[in-house]
Design a protein around this nucleic acid. Structure first.
Lengths: 191, 191, 191, 191
DNA sequence: AATGAATGAGAATTCATTCAT
DNA sequence: AATGAATGAATTCTCATTCAT
């Protein structure tokens, strides 16, 4: 092989896309992304055939990052509520530490650009999370036993909490706790 | 600028912008919006100096619509929980009846286009809603007594409920009720 | 109406496209064509929605020009052979006077860009020409009575003649006559 | 440049260029040609320094193929008319059997890409053909005795015949014969 | 006041060619 | 010798905005 395609460049492009999309929205130009990644514009298209491909790859990448962060402190043997709290806290912290990633992810989530295939890949990330939500909460949220609604509530509340926590550094811990309590009251079986 | 001649055209432009933004995202071109509104390309700019002005006006317009819908059945003399439920139901229904408006509103909400001035105007809409949230719930959500966090939770849960309710016509009522209960558990003082 | 779309600009664009395509082939860029026409590049696309549309319009335009030239001296009352010769001479002369047009036309003819609709429009140009070919020659060329083959031979020989005539100014008349004789021998009923 | 290693690859590239140019025109990308030839993008440029070089080599290659085919059945001892008919038939059949080659050749012929050197090389191909045309026909076509004009007429009529013959499989023989007769009437001394 | 023609700065994407491996 | 990653100029087309009518 002549030269292997560089994983480093791929990551640089995804990273550049993250901050550029966070700053300019989905209208962020491939030119700007390429410059920020330190590669030629043509190079971007060797790694991602179209801008939409890049955006889909970016969404998956960010979700992977997020889920990875959420599972870092995860203790399978812990109490259910404490496991949930650990995941919750990791989520909030990830968002605070990676504001651009979080912002880009939200832009992508409401856009029409994410393909069903990407959504399917995302859904398969970290089955532990799914097991957690199935196992420990949400039964009374919705009768059919499907936890998708409860999961969505979890995400929505976490997102809201994150936004408020991001405003003032002092109150982060307070928002984190209050948000978790609200989520727990809203969703959990056992109070 | 002097008051533009035709309020009717202004509304036609906002309506056209709603469906066009819902369909194409914020990249929707002014030409397309103008065509859909039945006016010439240049005419749009007699009503809104720039595209950003149009988007800001659109956001305010949609929020006004939504808030108006939420207050329609509002009975100031009712029980607190029933008042909250009425507002909740109105919100969900508005989203289901106006999917394009809801979608456009969400796109605008996560974009960078909405100015602080617009956000301030939106915040002042319908003080009754603020009073309701201040008066009746949420005290235990957050210590400082500011209800902004609780309001945001209300909106986030309503939005989530709407998305699920929109999927199947059968389960609308079930989602509406389950979502309200979750919100009430999460936020209200008195269960 | 604000301003009527200028026929003058349309013609300038077609003229510019003619010489630019003659010089650079079908790869001639829209930027170059617009500059040569003295309009902004964006303007080109207000007159022709796509480059292909422009090329189709150009083909039709050139064929109209050519056919117009061929019919200029046409005397419906003349002898058949003299009518044929007049058309032949007009064709050759048009090609010599408008080498860029002739060259562009040939490029377009062998390309895949010309749509069936354009070909149909071209076929309807100047029914007199069709009548001439039907009426006066070619019966013995092909048995089925369809004159398309004979017409194609006519065009092919004229094109060939034109190329040779274009080389030296002295021999134009000689080539014109020799070419016509060859064509007449090849195609006509009555010698 | 030293002789490149693999004649096989050179031919694969020319073959790939033939079908790719037939399909996409002269805009066919070198990358596509390389892929079709089963070699890497860069490899193409080890065999042909530039795309134009490739196109020139392709033109010469196709002409050689065609001329080779035309001379296959050539019987130097035969009757003049029969020799001419054999060449004619071989030409038509080559075009029908190799439509991509024929199409690519025509695109190249009208393009600006073919250099005088290539044209000169082509002109020297198969002196037998030249001898045939000198010897046997065309004297009355043009006074100067140069047979280039007659040759061009031969080619033009053959091309036209080929196009019509390619349309319907039934009438191939009929077109072949009718085309030859027309050519013979147009060009030959002795009827 | 309304129109829509005109604009030129970008937009995404392609491509011939080079060069490190 | 062969590869294919990298490049950046060029391409077609879009678009917000202006301005003559």
């Amino acid at each position: 092989m002549a030269r292997p395609k560089s994983e480093e460049k791929r990551l640089a492009l995804l990273e550049a896309a993250t901050v550029t999309v966070a700053e300019f929205g989905l209208g962020a130009s491939t030119a700007r992304i390429a410059v920020r990644a330190g590669v030629a514009e043509g190079t971007l298209f060797r790694y991602f055939a179209t801008k939409d491909d890049l955006l889909n790859a970016l969404y998956l990448h960010l979700k992977q990052n997020l889920c990875g962060a959420m599972m870092l402190d995860y203790n399978r043997a812990g109490q259910i509520k404490e496991r949930a709290r650990a995941v919750w806290n990791s989520y909030i912290e990830w968002g605070l530490v990676n504001p651009a990633a979080n912002k880009a992810m939200r832009q992508l989530a409401v856009s029409e650009k994410i393909s069903p295939a990407t959504l399917a890949s995302v859904a398969e990330l970290f089955p532990d999370l799914k097991a957690l939500s199935d196992a420990c909460f949400f039964n009374h949220v919705f009768i059919t036993g499907q936890s998708a609604f409860a999961e969505a509530i979890f995400m929505a509340l976490a997102q809201t909490t994150m936004e408020f926590a991001a405003r003032g550094t002092d109150e982060i811990a307070a928002y984190k706790a209050a948000g978790f309590d609200a989520m727990w009251r809203a969703c959990a079986n056992e109070q």
